[in-house]
Nucleic acid binder design. Structure first.
Lengths: 260, 260
DNA sequence: ATTAATAAAATGTCAATGCATTTTATTAAT
DNA sequence: ATTAATAAAATGCATTGACATTTTATTAAT
């Protein structure tokens, strides 16, 4: 342990680095519970606030997860590869997602903001679906989709809608094949409701993914997805001239020991 | 002041919200110095650690900037407007850029991190160019490029290098035509040096753009660009099946009244 | 066996203090 | 007037102590 009281480097920072090292070296594995703050304080020979400061930084950066009454755990490192996490058109052939849960499913008048994206009038209706998606026990994303009613009039009556083969249904039942999309993303702080769904503290950094899907130049759906995790990386391999690109994207997500 | 000792909401959080409110309401203006931690502790009737916890969160989120021995200040707000496009291969035909300034231009041994990207050995050399770019009076980006010496041996002798037609020179003099690239970006806090160049406070959120440019499968340059502004939007119009995409990207940048 | 109450463990919040370090302003010396 | 030394102010780091709240495991009652 490269830890010294005589160093000019702050104790909390040395401890922070030491813990991080132990995570990277496999001394602590993903999902492992760290010793309690009091135990760590004793181990390092420092006070609890010092330990807390070290741990707080690592929590902030997504390396650790804390839960009151439960303990401190090593979070999922910096996952994952490419299109696994999001197939561009959300076909959800993705086996990484072990479960999905429909939070809301209703028919509403379109909001003015969304109307613009979907080329709708203000009194047009859309189906709005909110889905919580997770990986094993974890909540990872909230996805809200709006689909114009006139494009898929009987969408809510579909039997397997709850199974969330939304884009499959749109294609097979309504002939709505996504041909291209416009997407953007942004880092945003978690709102109260979002934070409770995703089991993070309000204000935690989330990645907001917005997209409009087109089917033969007709806007067919607007999608808003919130991903947990404060680091987002996006890779593009681009070929000059054609402007064609192959897009690889991924998100780093922390893991929490329980969700439900 | 909606602040109460009887609330179930933690004191530090109430104070955090109160300070944030005062920033938004203009009670504290950009650049203003907040009362010292001790003063605030007295004002709110709490201890200094409580104040520090409140302030720390606001610093973390970029609303405040702290400096030891100096004080705590309201940081630059989160403005956006002028969408500024970046040509993918930095041809800089973009008229939005009114000026550019070469900060540094030298021949150095490649760092290990960059060596990996450029497929170089550790004792290989690169030309490193750091350029400050701006829009009228404002500093908007810092761009650092590394080009392997062996790919463009006489780069530093080019007469019009200072005029920054870097990619033009590479193409016309050395036959280095960028064919594809790998790029990624990330939100990062401004380091000290960067903050002074871009005229923002240290810790202000910047967008970090990293890219490796290839010429016929040969890595020809590594580019690192820092953009001012905390909001980044990226648009992709994608065509299904082929995975081909046309990429449009832009950054929303804050405007600052004076720079030089 | 199931359920409810209890206890233990862990993190969350807050206070009061002391000293260190950095910056800035003031003062003294040249 | 310039420079160097000093003092004051502000944040940075760390300790000790106390109590609150949440979760989990244990125990007791049914």
């Amino acid at each position: 342990m490269s830890f010294s009281f005589n160093s000019k480097i702050p104790l909390y920072y040395q401890i922070r680095e030491d813990i991080l090292h132990k995570i990277e070296q496999g001394h602590y594995n993903v999902g492992d519970q760290l010793p309690s703050e009091l135990q760590l304080a004793e181990d390092y020979g420092v006070s609890r606030p010092t330990i807390r400061q070290a741990i707080s930084e690592l929590v902030q950066e997504g390396h650790l997860i804390r839960g009151r009454g439960r303990g401190t755990f090593v979070s999922q490192p910096i996952i994952t590869d490419n299109a696994l996490a999001f197939s561009t058109f959300e076909e959800d052939s993705n086996i990484e997602y072990q479960w999905e849960k429909v939070i809301e499913c209703r028919r509403i008048y379109v909001s003015s903001e969304i109307a613009k994206d979907l080329h709708l009038a203000n009194d047009d209706e859309v189906f709005e679906m909110t889905v919580l998606k997770g990986n094993r026990k974890n909540c990872l994303t909230i996805r809200t989709s709006q689909i114009p009613v006139k494009l898929a009039p009987n969408l809510l009556e579909e039997k397997n809608l709850k199974d969330l083969k939304l884009y499959k249904i749109l294609r097979e039942e309504y002939g709505l094949v996504p041909t291209h999309s416009k997407q953007s993303f942004q880092s945003v702080p978690a709102e109260l409701e979002e934070s409770s769904l995703l089991k993070v503290d309000p204000g935690s950094p989330l990645t907001l993914w917005r997209g409009v899907l087109y089917s033969c130049e007709t806007p067919m759906a607007r999608v808003k997805t919130l991903f947990r995790g404060d680091r987002f990386r996006f890779e593009i391999a681009q070929n000059e001239g054609t402007n064609d690109t192959v897009v690889m994207k991924w998100v780093n997500l922390p893991e929490i020991s329980d969700c439900f």
